[in-house]
Nucleic acid binder design. Sequence first.
DNA 1: TTGAAAGCGCTAACAA
DNA 2: TTGTTAGCGCTTTCAA
Lengths: 339, 339
Amino acid sequence: MTGFTIKDVAREAKVSVGSVSRVLNGLAVSEAMKKKVDAAVAKLGYQPNSLARSMRTRSTGAVGFLVTDISNPLYGATINAVDARLRANGLMLLLASSGNRLQTELDVLAEFKRRRVDGLLMAPGSDANGPMLETLERFGAPIALMSGDFPRRFASVTTDYRSGVKSATRYLLDLGHRRIALLTPLAHLWPGRERIAGFRAAFREAGLPEQNALVRPQNLGLDTADDVADLLDVAQPPTALVLLGTRILAGALRTLRERRLRIPADLSIISIGDTEWTAVHEPPITALRWSADDVADALVGLLLAQINGVAAGAAPGRVTVPTELVLRGSCAAPRDPGA
Amino acid sequence: MTGFTIKDVAREAKVSVGSVSRVLNGLAVSEAMKKKVDAAVAKLGYQPNSLARSMRTRSTGAVGFLVTDISNPLYGATINAVDARLRANGLMLLLASSGNRLQTELDVLAEFKRRRVDGLLMAPGSDANGPMLETLERFGAPIALMSGDFPRRFASVTTDYRSGVKSATRYLLDLGHRRIALLTPLAHLWPGRERIAGFRAAFREAGLPEQNALVRPQNLGLDTADDVADLLDVAQPPTALVLLGTRILAGALRTLRERRLRIPADLSIISIGDTEWTAVHEPPITALRWSADDVADALVGLLLAQINGVAAGAAPGRVTVPTELVLRGSCAAPRDPGA
DNA sequence: TTGAAAGCGCTAACAA
DNA sequence: TTGTTAGCGCTTTCAA
């Protein structure tokens, strides 16, 4: 029912189990032996039990990847690429989504550990502090982290949100905007903090008061559409919006349309993160973009280096993936420059 | 290094390994025993090796999910929901993406089998025929398939594309459209065929010539934008477009904008599949929607029923998830009705 | 090159 | 209730 074992194959081929194992693993065997075993394997449709194998070799060929949200389009491409690269290296992906819940993260990490994964990939959705770092410390397998400010002892790949948002903001400032709002989710986590830092730095470097840099953290529950409405209902509303993530961008655009505000005539918009839709919108939306493939390459590369012991002794790698501002049609000089 | 074994815990607690196992599995033990073992486990930070456990119990607690494309937003929500439901049932998700390549599918299935997954979830990306069906037949673990027309012996959940596209098409016909084009990817696979069938059925039932039902299959390589351009460059171009999938919808919208064709004044549009963006587009796009949560619920439900032996003897379940046409602003009567 | 046998870490059957 | 031990399916010495 469940399938055949190596014993069955040995009996069928009239050889010892050791020899079957050798054939299966491509070790030195005679031609005749290989032929006999291959025939028996084919006849029975035998598939080796990788659990038993893992038990002996102490290697599972599985890599755990813990993300915050699989359905986030900004993540999807990365997961896809990680899966492909892992498989190309004979590894299998164990995927789990934490929904940004610390307890879920801890649970999943424990599960990965019980399953003795050969490596761990993780985008922390809660702040990687105390308990989490300790757990990672004790994890017992190579780790590559993404999107965070981690201690140097961990390999990590980060997207350069800070420079990206800074240049996006500077672009708006150069156009003449003086009051700009940044809407970002999870402002207390690293990605949010980086974006805010870049945003403020642009104002500072331009010699402008940071009070004009309106930071509006978006909570997961909060409706961006409402928040944008509030933002606009003041005497001196912002003339430009920097928006992060599909949901926030979508929510903001909805409000703007309801109010019949035109982009970019009445308000300029920049999206942090590029999807298929930004180019389709009317007008096309200027966006900050980065390569999901590069992130995946770096992540898997850093992990494999550790698994294969290539980086033995060396300090864990740190990769920063650059961002690029794609200029489209959603930004223009404000109606009343310098106001 | 790798971690402690049950033997270490037994020694630490000064009890036998059998007793440790019993405590770990919540079997009958004395209070004193439980206390001693728990203390030792905590002290060592022991995590049971689930490989060894699986080997004895012949259950891995892992479910393989083979999809065609993780980054497809239409899939992302389903994967997320499947992950959550699986974990709620103590199962772990092994995810792989085939990119619609048959060989990759076969490879992944073999790998899942070697890993002795407790169940298989799959959305075939190649047509589920001969070799694939045979492979599934011999898989040796419960299976629940999605998006396809499978033999009755397999449990499956399908989205009712046929009725959905039919009612979408009828909606356009009722508005007065007579020449309508359907753009769908992978027309040779089940989902594509179902949509085409529904599309044609609407014409047939309305007593209209099926030649007016313009089916334009989209190959993965082909640029939809170009194809839409071709489609419009004829004496009697279609007055409405039914578009499937993010990429095709985006490509088509791009062409329409370049040509300064207005929606819905010059052309009506319906999207098969709803995302956050359809509602944001100007005008908001009328779309056919279905619940990713319902698909995930059905899929996991059908699998668990088999794993837990609830459905023993009964015919494998078949679930059809309904679709719903969300009316927004992208459809209107054609300029020249009945032309 | 091949066979025999130990053992990976755990569970479960059997004894005590 | 607890301890002892066989054995899950494989890899890997060690002898032959």
